[in-house]
Amino acid sequence: MDKKLSKEELLDLIESLNPKIKKSLKNTNYQDRNDLEQEIKLKIIESYEKIAAIEAPNFEEFLAEFLTKQKQ
């Protein structure tokens, strides 16, 4: 199983985040909203490399970090 996000999955994710995007459009004028929507989606796609480079710990690493923190 590939843990990194494929480009298709990214598009799906953007689709599922659509309500969030729509909500954020309220931060700007009526006239600029369509521009903003497009630019947000573009920005997300542009940052694909960054998103793919996000590192996540596995369960043991996460647990070990928690346990060592607790000991201190």
């Binding site: 994710l13 953007i14 985040l17 969030k20 995007i21 954020s24 459009l25 931060n27 700007t28 600029d32 903003l36 630019e39 947000i40 920005k43 997300i44 940052s47 998103i51």
Partner: peptide, 12 residues
């Protein structure tokens, strides 16, 4: 992505 959307819209 959620933070990106929010901060980008404010910035825009």
């Amino acid at each position: 992505m959620c933070s990106l959307i929010y901060f980008f819209s404010v910035d825009f």
